[in-house]
Every structure is written in C-alpha cells, then in structure tokens.
Nucleic acid binder design. Structure first.
Lengths: 200, 200
DNA sequence: CCTACCGATCGGTAGG
DNA sequence: CCTACCGATCGGTAGG
C-alpha cells in the first residue's frame, strides 16, 4: 500500500510536469490533471496537498539536482576551465534527464507563492554565484579574458537552458557530445582562427 | 474621441504587458487589468475584443518589430560576420526597447489559441531561418567554423533573450555596448588567446 | 464607460 | 479513491 501511494504520487508529479510544460501552470487545471491520470479530481488530494505543492516539488526538486551535479564538480581540484566545462556538462545532463521538469523549472517558477518565490530566487542566485566564482578564479589566473562575470554567466545559463527542448533540433548522440559542442562555442567562439576582420 | 480610444487601447496593451510579465497570461485576470487601469472590467471590452486578442497583439507586434530590424540588416551588402553582428544588435535593441512585451513574447506565446500558435511558430521559424542563412553563408566562405547551424542559432537566441531582464544585471551604458560584449563572447569565446589547455 | 449579470470553471473539502 | 458539493473567480455580454 505504501508503495502504491508513492507510485501514484510520482505519477501525479510526472503528469503535472507534462501538462505544465504544455499549457503552463496556471493554464492547467486539477481536472485536466486528474483526467490524464484516470481518477476523479478530488482523489488527487489523497496524494498531494495542493496544486502549488506540486509546482513547489518540481521546482525545488530540480534545484536539488542542479546543486548535486555542481557539488560533484567542486570536490575535484581541477583548473577553472576544466571545472567550468564539467559544471556545464553536469547542468546539461540534469536538463536532459528531466526535460519536462526543466521546462517547468525555467518557465513556471514565477507562479510559486510569495514565500517560495523568495526561497527559489535565493537558491537560483546561489547556484549562479557558484558558476561566477569559477569564472572569477579563471579570470584571476589569466585563463579567461577580462570579461564581465555576471553578464557572462547569465548569458551562459540562458544559452544552455533551451536544451530542455533539444528534441526539436535532434542532432547529437548524447549529453556529452552536446556539452562539447556547446563548450566549444562558449570557450572559443564561432569565428575562424584565420579571420581577423571582426576579431575584437 | 478617436485619439482617446487609441490612447486607452495602448494603455491597456502596456498594462497587460506589465501584468503578464509579472504573473503570466493565465495568471492575470481581466479584473486585475481593469483595476490597474482604473476602470470597470466590463469597460475593457469597449477597446479590445478579448483577452487572447491582447496577447495576440503583443506577440505578433513583437514579431513584426524583430522582422523589421532584421530586414534593415539584410538590405545592406555586408560580409556574413558584419551582417550577423548587426542582426544581433538589431535584435537586442528591439528587446531593450520593449522589455515587458519581450518577456510576454518569450514566455506567454504558448497561451495563444491553436490557430495563432501555428502562425506564431511559423513566423518564429522563419526568423530563425534568416539568421541560419547568414551563418551558413559565413561557413561556406570560411569566416565561421564548421559548426552545426541550427544548434548554434538556437544557442545564440537563447543566449540573447534573457536581456529583457537586463536590469537585474545593470552594467552597460546602452544597447550597443551590450551588443558588443555579447558578440565578443559569441564570436571569440571567453578563453584567453595564450591558453591552449582546453582549446579544441 | 457603467451597472448588473451570465454560465462555466476554478481549487479544494466533507464524508464515506 | 469516489460522490456530492462549496464559495470564489473566471471571461465576457446586455443594455444603457
């Protein structure tokens, strides 16, 4: 029985991810959700506390995954470049392993209640800070150019985060290949070496 | 009288942009909107046809602005690099000049009705294609590396599109400076020239 | 631009 | 997990 309850709960979460991604949190009703699962709307409340609680689970669950991947990178003592490359790869893997939940994480966090919204923004800022620290370290060591740290990390995340929708551009074998292609652009740019026309 | 109606209509649009950005399209009610403007909810319908019509106006209005900026770039006969640089700058200027509307354009287009959704996706794809053509031209000429065109352009847009929220990272004087910083990253990468550790 | 109001739908609860 | 149902709110219309 315990097992069944857990299964149903995760089924609700998974279906919610799918629907929230498609029609947005506010555009998805509990009746939609129940219908997709095959139970009556009122029955949902045997497994979940509220609609917002589902959103909260998804958003903070993803945050936990992102931090977990990032911390795995930090414990190794690599150079800033390698560390950043690995952090990007970790971030991408989390997205690809949870495509629907990622879409909710990126698009629907704003529907969190005031209290959760504050917590969410703080967590996100902390995560960004982690990446900024790596970049800063690399700039100090001279491995990265003298760039605006915050601007660059914002661009970096923005640049990666569309990958939850990568299927529409299906092109690479796996997360690693995708990550490599991405890091190549971000580290070295798209301009050919022998082209100096617009270089700096 | 004609003028007054137009003013009120654009006021509705502008206020809708603000609210949709903050709470999402589905999270914003016509009553919210009316209250912010200072009229009764029913009065809105003297100026607009429906809630979705406002969203439609915003989304397709932005699309028109993006195309307009892009076409200005195409009529000049520049090299692919210069053309891409100018197209990026044009795109950024449109975003910065319509920050709220851009947020709606990027986040809330999925709330469009089925028919408008199809039209919207087609327009967006056409716009992306325009950028892809420039990149392709540059690859053929050898000015750009042999990169996956679609992947790169998706990354490019994703990378730029967070700029509607640039105020949280207030750092650059104007759109041109922002555009230059951005193009520098994308064209040349963040890695220092004398660092070969992770270079390809 | 307002008052008055419509039917539909919302998230959620009571009780079994 | 269901039936039955709650009050609140939704987008929108009629008529002036």
């Amino acid at each position: 029985m315990e097992v069944q309850v857990l299964n149903r709960k995760s089924q609700i979460r998974q279906t919610a991810c799918l629907l929230f991604r498609e029609k947005g949190y506010a555009g998805t009703s509990m009746r939609d959700l129940a219908k997709h699962i095959g139970i009556e709307p009122a029955s949902l409340y045997s497994h979940i506390k509220s609609k917002e609680n589902i959103l909260q689970d998804i958003c903070f669950g993803m945050a936990k995954d992102f931090f977990s991947a990032f911390n795995d990178v930090l414990i190794e003592n690599d150079t800033p470049e390698i560390k950043l490359k690995k952090a990007i790869e970790g971030h991408i893997k989390v997205i690809l392993n949870n495509a629907d939940a990622s879409a909710v994480f990126f698009y629907d966090w704003r529907y969190l209640s005031a209290e959760n919204l504050t917590k969410f923004k703080a967590m996100r800022r902390k995560y960004e800070k982690g990446f900024e620290n790596i970049l800063e370290e690399g700039v100090d060591l001279g491995s990265f150019k003298e760039i605006n740290i915050r601007f660059t990390i914002q661009s970096l995340f923005s640049c990666i985060n569309w990958l939850y929708d990568w299927k529409k551009v299906a092109m690479f074998a796996d997360a690693e290949e995708m990550s490599t292609n991405f890091t190549n652009i971000f580290f070295n740019g798209i301009l050919n070496e022998n082209n100096f026309l617009t270089k700096n």
